[in-house]
Design a protein around this nucleic acid. Structure first.
Lengths: 338, 338
DNA sequence: GGGCCCAGAGATAACGTTTTCCCACAGAGG
DNA sequence: CCTCTGTGGGAAAACGTTATCTCTGGGCCC
């Protein structure tokens, strides 16, 4: 092995430098409750620690305290740019609190459960953020009675601790926008029916449409480009195709837009499109997509806070819904009916 | 705190169950070299471990072995879907090898260095994958002489261990495609000049164009939609605008395409566009983008392998270039010159 | 002046591993 | 009968922390 830098600085190194016992260093640095230390000694220790750039070894500390200062984060897919925002929010908030985040992607729906299983059974994490749970997921039940606390992100799980957003309202906002533009033949391209988050959007959309005295088809498909494409093809093939469509996810929106154009349907002239999930992406499509912006980064942050509370023993808040309201960002994919 | 499952199973638990000393369990499970153990005892131990689902505590083991079985991964931005593939490749390979990956995003160019600093100084990682280094990055130098080995991913750093792809060839492929279609007025929307990976693409593109007896402008901009947009506006504003453009990154391509359309330039009729980085995204744009597909997932996998070799003490391979050749995926954004 | 208390710090134990060393016992050989 | 050599496994130490318990002077009160 190539010669590398020196090994980590330990309490013993600092103690030697300061001329005290190593436990004294520990107590001083931790601001121990029964600290009876001469200011002068204290200064010497602090200076030594500073000079040597002492940082407590995470594994030594973890072993002693049986706390790892590490959180697990399970996300469905990193291909959805929106999850990048969740990851960012969670990582940065965790970082501020002295925690590290281990990410696990449930790309093809198989790795998350065993990955979690290993992280927990090896004692690597203090808690888990779950953004992947399906409604019928047996793994979710397992997480509930695991030795570490879990928080469901953007999912609501019975008996679990959840943090979510005002999704129904977001869907209402989108539907309301289309209705206000004079559209009466609406439709919703939804996510999988076993995803709580998708169901909530459906609920909001449906309620808004019904209140306006209309009915609208819901087409549930996978949360990706392909799903959106197929759903749009299906909708446009109907005898009375919709003139206003609310799409449940940005990847789907890309597919839906593509399908409309290939079928020769002009957006927004013949078809208005609103998408859930705002992202820089939406701005650069043709036409730029009207979108409902959701506080994804904040979602990640709050989830971490809730999890840290639970780790600290405070299980008080069970369901958190973010205050931040959905924001409709109007671009050029929606227009008044001719 | 809510009552949760029992604490972790330790060697002592297994030992009690099997009726032996706990160190005997450890040696048996690890297949220790000097294991002189009665087959019958061995079976009893294995069965007990199985029954109790024993998994060694990562921190106890880490402390003893001074190895964490954790790798750090620094990526520039998760918004680029291509990095999602790198993350996936690295995570899955690491997982197979019994390692865990800690992701750190260098979103606004500030967090990566301190994040790394903390991971290393707290003894949390055995090695680091760096996909963020700029050519002039002072942090990169620091990583070279750090107490843990680093591997640069998709970057080549002097004095470092690097794994990269056939990027020059990829750029040649793109340029060659445009030339073969009869284009003579080419241009390249490049990435930042202080990124090794961007420079290599420029080099390949420039060489191919020169060999064909032409000259072509290079416009270096940020690796995002906005950068691509501005670069395209600039190119189209020239007195002799290009008819064939090679874009260095999928996010840029989105911006470039958007700019062309807003300027009323038809793609591919008046302008052919090829992008580096293939992604499902490209398929659903209008028109679907011709792209050069690169083995991003394999890049992540190989980087992990190289890093694990280094951790094991094998510093043999210094520069790895993936064999997998770039693949031109022809779609509808390129066409022969009228 | 003797006991007491308190400041100021050292000593010890424990977290869960792995590794090295050691010990007991059996059978064999002299 | 005594040592010698394996065999099968126990004992101890160490990794770097933190929490608790203990020790040592010196000053104070009575």
């Amino acid at each position: 092995m190539a010669a590398r830098g020196p090994r980590q600085v330990t309490l013993y190194d600092v103690a030697r430098e300061a001329g005290v016992h190593f436990t004294t260093v520990s107590r001083t640095l931790n601001g121990s409750a029964d600290l009876n230390i001469r200011p002068q000694t204290r200064e010497r220790i602090l200076a030594a620690a500073e000079r040597l750039k002492y940082r407590p070894n995470a594994f030594g500390r973890g072993l002693r305290l049986s706390s790892t200062h590490t959180l697990g984060l399970l996300v469905p897919s990193l291909r959805n740019p929106v999850y990048a925002a969740v990851v960012r929010g969670a990582s940065s908030r965790a970082w501020e609190r002295g925690y590290v985040v281990v990410l696990s992607e449930d790309s093809e729906g198989g790795l998350a459960a065993p990955a979690y299983e290993r992280l927990v059974s090896e004692g690597r994490i203090d808690g888990l953020l779950v953004a992947t749970a399906r409604r019928d997921d047996p793994a979710a039940e397992q997480w509930l009675k695991a030795p570490v606390p879990a928080v469901f992100v953007n999912r609501r799980h019975r008996g679990g601790h959840n943090v979510s957003m005002r999704e129904e309202e977001a869907a209402r906002l989108a539907a309301g926008h289309l209705l206000a533009l004079g559209h009466t033949r609406l439709a919703h391209i939804a996510g999988p029916e076993n995803l709580d988050t998708a169901v909530r959007r459906v609920r909001g959309f449906r309620a808004a449409v019904r209140e306006a005295g209309h009915r609208a088809p819901i087409v549930p498909v996978a949360f990706d480009e392909r799903g959106g494409y197929r759903a749009m093809v299906e909708l446009l093939g109907r005898s009375r195709p919709p003139t206003g469509v609310f799409v449940s996810n940005i990847n789907q929106a890309l597919g839906a837009l593509s399908a409309a154009k290939r079928q020769g349907v002009a957006v927004p002239e013949q078809l208005s499109l609103v998408t859930y999930d705002d992202d820089a992406l939406a701005e650069y499509l043709d036409p730029p997509l009207t979108a409902v912006r959701m506080p994804m980064q904040e979602l990640g942050e709050r989830a971490v806070e809730m999890l840290l509370d639970r780790i600290a023993g405070d299980d008080g808040r069970v369901d958190v819904v973010l205050d931040t309201p959905p924001l409709l960002v109007e671009r050029s994919s929606t227009a008044a009916t001719g």
